[in-house]
Design a protein around this nucleic acid. Structure first.
Lengths: 232, 232
DNA sequence: TTCTGTGAATTTATTCACAGCA
DNA sequence: TGCTGTGAATAAATTCACAGAA
């Protein structure tokens, strides 16, 4: 019946990507972390088998994932760690130096700023925002804290593209609206609620309760005598 | 070693579960949150269509997900919100009152303790641990802080089953080893590293950098003129 | 040989479409 | 009529298995 995806893909003049599967994209950051680790150990070459062992997935899966983006490996040898590391950074857009706005300078916000590995490459927090007047004007980990109503102006002036919401759920939607209004392109939301935004804005939620509940589902299940796969 | 799972399932006398898909399990906490919201709005009944709209997934998917666990709905009417809320809590094991141990009483640990929605039902932090001697003996949000070497003793005495790791990556594996040694059954890991634990212990990692990189992948892609689905 | 890259086979997940009940 | 529950159809992801390059 209808023309399949391949038809659409063929229209593009130089098409390397034939629509990457979501699960593949989710695995990329994991691979990147492995490259960094092996790179630090001065291991020059890595095989799909080694990568697979670290992430506990199938070697063929690793090869397929990487092959979506190009032919990075050398047959009979493996993948050059440095090359792959830099390629993966490029694929993930980390070579750009993304500017972040952090909304909420409480404990979570502070933790995020301190979390070294978080911003080690490709990210820079340009401004933090908080409703607490006693915090405004001060710096936190070298980042200036503004009053929340300044979001619109500061985000526009500094051309910040990504916002991190680290405020209570009750304030999250309001903050999201302001960020959207200021022209933000993506939001990472730590508040336990669903945000409604225009569909041109990307949202990713990190929900701590959900993660715990995912764990307890399996704990509960195994308590009842079930022996199926656990997450090693 | 064993014959396939289906064979094992058939042995059980009253088997409702025929191996629940992982994606279904990941959606359960999302549904639970919706039930709570609708319940607070005094809406008594909810349809798969409404639930689907909130989570932006397919209504048939919602029905299938719920049907894995029993026939909770009423044809022509919908699902009773209260019933479903309490059923879902049971499925996720939240009726048990899980005891948690928090390792790392820095900003992240403090944020987790303060994060109300997090522990509102089904979870209680029984003890916190930190290497900083100046914190030991004090309380944080009503939770006593112990020295890290006390993990083994305290976790055993209090029969704590879940550990939360909120320490720097460099210390995470050591902490995981101690938790495992103390008999913990599951770990929620906020440190950006892979933990190696016996396969009887469940691990779930929340990696902040990965989440950001997932976002930038799509931002980078759309900057290059791609128009495929964004995450509304 | 070893290890990648990739079509084909298989497994898993989603969506359709409709029977059955209120 | 309206909505659930569920087999059947479809779509997507994973794994196999092998050709081809170092």
């Amino acid at each position: 019946m209808s023309a399949k995806r391949s038809a659409a893909a063929k229209k593009s003049p130089n098409f390397k990507r034939k629509s990457i599967p979501e699960p593949t994209i989710a695995r990329l950051p994991q691979y990147l972390r492995s490259f960094s680790e092996f790179s630090q150990k001065d291991q020059l070459v890595i095989s799909s088998k080694e990568l697979a062992a670290v992430s506990s997935i199938n070697p063929a899966q690793v090869r397929k994932d990487l092959a979506y983006f190009g032919q990075f490996g050398q047959r009979g040898v493996g993948y050059d760690v440095k090359t792959l590391d830099s390629k993966m950074r490029e694929i993930l857009g980390l070579h750009k130096g993304w500017k972040l706005a952090l909304v909420g300078a409480g404990h979570l916000g502070t933790a995020l700023l301190q979390y070294g590995g978080f911003f080690k490459a490709g990210f820079r927090v340009e401004a933090a925002f908080d409703v607490d007047p006693s915090k405004v004007g001060w710096e936190l980990e070298g980042v200036r804290i503004w009053a929340t109503p300044a979001i619109r102006q500061v985000v526009r002036e500094k051309k910040i593209e990504i916002g991190i919401i680290a405020v209570p759920a009750s304030q999250a939607q309001r903050v999201a609206d302001e960020l959207v209004d200021a022209g933000i392109r993506a939001i990472l939301n730590f508040a336990p609620c669903v945000l409604s935004v225009p569909k041109s804005v990307l949202v990713r939620g990190v929900d701590l309760a959900s993660e715990l509940e995912h764990l307890t589902y399996f704990l509960e299940k195994s308590s009842k005598g079930d022996k199926s796969k656990s997450g090693g």
